[in-house]
Amino acid sequence: MNTLIKPQIRAPFAKKHLLQILDLNRLEALELIERAEGFLPYTSIKEKKLDFLAGQTLINLFFENSTRTQSSFELAGKRLGADVVNMAVKSSSVAKGETLLDTAATLNAMGPDLLVIRHKSSGAAQLLARKVSCSVINAGDGTHEHPSQAFLDSLTLKRTFGRIEGLKIAICGDILHSRVARSNIMLLNMLGAEVRLIAPPTLMPTDADKWGVKIYDNLLHGIEGVDVIMALRLQLERMSGSFLPSPREYFRFYGIDREKIRVAAPHVRVMHPGPMNRGIEIDSEIADDPRISLIVDQVQSGVAMRMAILEAMASYEGGEDA
């Protein structure tokens, strides 16, 4: 038996699904992070198994390739005692032309309790949530949102700084195509951080200035005095063509390296949702420096955060739908 006190069973969570950040209010967001903090000790001890979700079934439905998010949800589900099924989409009927809703109906008939979905289309999780009776957790939909990533980033920040409110955070890179950025913008704003967005103008969403953030096309101006820099992954197909001329030009002006972060706060920490393109959006010297990089902490927070999300959604008892 482990020596830790088992996290307390909480009151049921008020929401059934986790589809996008703005479906939650501030208190609910804080509650999720708090629940995750209770699970954190379980990520570093030998006896990790709990029984919150014993007898429940979690289906991982990943239409896009993923290593860390899928295994993170899988581990989280298993540590809570759930039966976890990973649907291998590539070899399934989806590859044979079945639509998302047909797949949803089939899965629904199997009676899962939790469905974690990643899909290339924005809004796919919402569509699924309307058609199945279980809880749906969005693990990334197109260029819309990736809420569990934003939550694990906030959990990491809270562990590092003890707070989120008032932190100056620069999100840097391909904001336009980033679901991680969208979820982080909404969540960090909600939690009272000061958010700045830095991107080449071709990779900044239209009207992003209406999101209550400051917009920069110059990295040095954007990271001046910030506590945290979140670098985003630059997709290979966008490194050249009409978004950007070349990876090396991008690194020269937007890559996070030791020279550039001098203008940030002295205690600046750097985050990255992974997987990294070393030497393009982030220099290895930064990524591997434990005094600066929070990248390993993010992965560690990920499992605890997803345990909290799964447990919270599973505890939903009705009332307010979604």
Partner: peptide, 10 residues
């Protein structure tokens, strides 16, 4: 195109 499309990731 606009704020809503950007927020919805479309």
């Amino acid at each position: 195109q606009g704020e809503l499309a950007a927020r919805m990731g479309l």
